[in-house]
Nucleic acid binder design. Structure first.
Lengths: 203, 203
DNA sequence: CTCTCTAAGTTGACACTGTCAAGATTGATC
DNA sequence: GATCAATCTTGACAGTGTCAACTTAGAGAG
């Protein structure tokens, strides 16, 4: 009551947001496994159980962070799509952008597309609402590229979208999980991938 | 000393193997997260710290289980390659086989190709020796298929191998991590993937 | 202005976890 | 038969997530 004049320890108002920020920071720098609710609480200057008034679970906190990730990713993707010139290899750009996002934010990516969140998460509508537009966007792009003649127009759009996503996700995972250790190959790998999917006009 | 006549509790000889088997069983049925060394020990009928004389770490135990997985997988793959007829769509068969292995053994797959093992595992040579043949085998197959005209002969073999693996791994992960929930689509997705990589002779 | 109600923050307690250290038991070897 | 190293044991510690039961304070009704 003496060291914080305007706000007493009770009801300091933006605890939920503070927790999200601090947790995101910890995860980015030390990894998901290093996140402890107790440490987090003391770090924010609050007692052990305080976070439980804002998140039912540790898992719900993680879901909320993933949700933020989806929001952030959505904006990035939209920005990127407006910059890209028509003459560029759009598919390659898209893939590179995807994999690099994963590479730059490995722990957040892990959270967004990893088992921790998605196993047994039938209930969390908020997360799903944040995530589904991302999936939908990929499908729309695929359709667009099929129409443009960049991708195989004969393929079922949903399937093709799933396969391309699978490819990007797989490459990203192999990289950030430490199986592909040479990150300098990212460009070469993505180029090879893009070439496989691209329809060659002259051949 | 009374209830086990032939073997006293000390030196019961095959503890390492017993631990591996019990741990594998638990992981398969309850998931990696559910594996506790203490529970495992009591389950096998031994005290808390006994496992530490056979595995330095919990992590080393997990590595050993993954290693077994690689051994087992190697045999399966070889069997499969001998059965496959020449006229079949070999690429599709291979992809389906891969993804279905992951689907049938999700937790073991998670271990074999997941971050738990591969992060900070520069030291574990035994694991690497078991895993690398799998990677090498994929590369060899890719080269073979390129020579056969099934895959793009112009592509760099290593890159192409990495991309195809990425695709399979990505699809597998999205399935077993609970993002692709409809497992009945596996065939359709793999077919679409195989078609993208395959060189079409008539077109 | 007071009374109440509730959202938010608190400490105590419990059942877990992995693992360090130090002691006990054993079968094999000189 | 004594020694030694491998193996198994219990004690202890520092963590973890979270249930229960409390305290506090701010907001709204009387």
């Amino acid at each position: 009551m003496s060291d914080s004049p305007s706000k007493s320890n009770y009801h300091h108002g933006d605890l939920r947001q503070k927790l999200l920020e601090a947790a995101t920071e910890t995860i980015k720098s030390q990894g998901i496994e290093a996140l402890s609710l107790r440490k987090l609480a003391t770090e924010v200057g609050v007692s052990r159980m305080a976070p439980y008034h804002h998140f039912k679970d540790k898992n719900e906190l993680l879901c909320a962070i993933a949700e933020q990730g989806f929001q952030q990713r959505k904006n990035t993707v939209v920005d990127q799509s407006q910059i890209t010139n028509e003459e560029d290899n759009q598919l390659l750009s898209y893939m590179l952008n995807y994999v690099r996002f994963a590479q730059k934010n490995p722990e957040i990516y892990e959270l967004m597309f990893g088992r921790t969140i998605w196993k047994n998460q039938i209930d969390n509508d908020s997360l799903k609402n944040a995530a589904y537009p991302t999936f939908q966007y990929q499908l729309d792009l695929t359709k667009q590229w099929q129409a443009n003649g960049l991708l195989d127009a004969n393929a079922n759009s949903l399937r093709l979208s799933q396969v391309i996503w699978g490819t990007m996700h797989g490459i990203a995972k192999l990289l950030i999980d430490g199986i592909y250790t040479d990150t300098s190959q990212i460009e070469a790998i993505c180029m090879c991938a893009a070439e496989q999917f691209a329809i060659k006009l002259e051949q």
